[in-house]
């Protein structure tokens, strides 16, 4: 999407979770197609949002990029070079993560100082004046006066303050990428914007590349430069945030937007589709959205749609945007993407 090399890039990431069917010792295991062939790029000084319903695979993508879990297929590139195997400390220094639940992401038995001190110690960043660095970190996430926070326990802070501490912890190692998995969804509405503004601030001031995972498309529009929409483990649309929300190209994005609360709406919203996301144990054939899609065509049931550029930096994976002749042709098996697809299904 952008000319410069992205700071962090996931290419064709695929992750299946093998789960037991039933509790028996000898139960069959079946794959949950949590993430299928997703490519995503994070640029410096940009917030990229991943939006989708529960179970769409957003967290899995975030964890793949943070290399907490390993992809079955595909690769993660840091500055255009394959990320080192495993999760060495050098990677931890570049890529940090903020979790959804600020009540769970801080250890209740340790003081705030401990949470900020550990990353400094692990990465030998304190140089003897940890207190000063900690104070600085707390100030950067707008927790002032910093001194009053260091010796508090997590339960003595409010949700928003905790999430700021979690962000400060991530910032402690001076990372270049921050992966934030639903950082505000557990917070009170009135303090969400504060945390989002903080993230925007960090992007601007510290040139961070930020991945913002959320199910709230309005907040993604507010914060992000680019929005990526995921459905049932696949990427269905990606575009600059305003053009995505103003001109959604994929029927699923349209559905999401029609369902989102929007008091400014002039008319009663009309839901552009119904139903619930499919089981990822046996995802639908072809386009995974076809059972819910109001525009579904024959081809949708049979073949996964290719990703099509529908505007500047705007791509959508939907047969509607493939021009009819080509659609026809691909049904006859003439399109290059198809052989790839076949190969994938064989595996």
């Amino acid at each position: 999407m952008s000319e410069a090399t992205p700071v962090l890039e996931g290419r064709n990431l695929t992750k299946y979770f093998w789960v037991r069917q039933g509790r028996s010792l000898f139960a069959r295991r079946a794959p949950v197609h949590a993430v299928d062939n997703v490519s995503i790029q994070l640029d410096a000084k940009k917030v990229t949002a991943v939006v989708g319903e529960s179970g769409a695979g957003k967290t899995t993508v975030a964890r793949l990029l943070a290399r907490i879990i390993r992809p079955d297929q595909g690769s993660v590139l840091l500055d255009g070079r394959p990320a080192p195997a495993g999760r060495p400390r050098s990677y931890a220094r570049q890529v940090q993560m903020v979790f959804q639940d600020p009540f769970a992401s801080l250890n209740p038995v340790h003081r705030i100082r401990h949470h900020l001190e550990r990353p400094l110690k692990i990465h030998h960043l304190a140089n003897g004046n940890a207190d000063a660095v900690i104070g600085d970190l707390l100030r950067r996430v707008a927790l002032k006066p910093a001194e009053s926070f260091t010796s508090k326990f997590p339960h003595e802070l409010s949700g928003g303050q905790r999430q700021r501490v979690a962000i400060a912890r991530a910032l402690a190692v001076k990372p270049r990428v921050l992966i934030a998995d639903e950082p505000v969804s557990m917070l009170d509405v009135s303090i969400r914007l504060g945390v989002l503004n903080l993230l925007a601030d960090l992007r601007d001031r510290e040139n961070l590349a930020i991945l913002y995972v959320t199910h709230d498309i309005a907040s993604a529009r507010y914060l992000a430069d680019t929005i990526v929409v995921m459905y049932a483990g696949q990427l269905v649309e990606a575009a600059p945030s305003v053009s995505l929300t103003d001109n959604p190209a994929h029927p699923y994005t349209q559905l999401l937007l029609s369902a989102a609360p929007d008091p400014d709406r002039a008319q009663q919203p009309v839901l552009a589709g119904r139903g619930a996301p499919p089981s990822l144990l046996a995802p639908p054939s072809g386009c995974r959205f076809h059972p819910r899609c109001p525009y579904a065509m024959d081809v949708c049931k049979r073949k996964a749609p290719p990703s099509i550029a529908v505007g500047t930096d705007h791509i959508a994976a939907c047969w509607l945007h493939v021009d009819p002749a080509e659609r026809q042709a691909s049904e006859n098996g003439l399109v290059a993407s198809e052989s790839l697809e076949k190969e994938r299904q064989k595996r």
Binding site: G22, R23, S24, L25, F26, A27
Partner: peptide
């Protein structure tokens, strides 16, 4: 049955 079999194994 699975649970029971598993326990039976134990």
């Amino acid at each position: 049955m699975g649970v029971i079999l598993r326990r039976l194994g134990v």
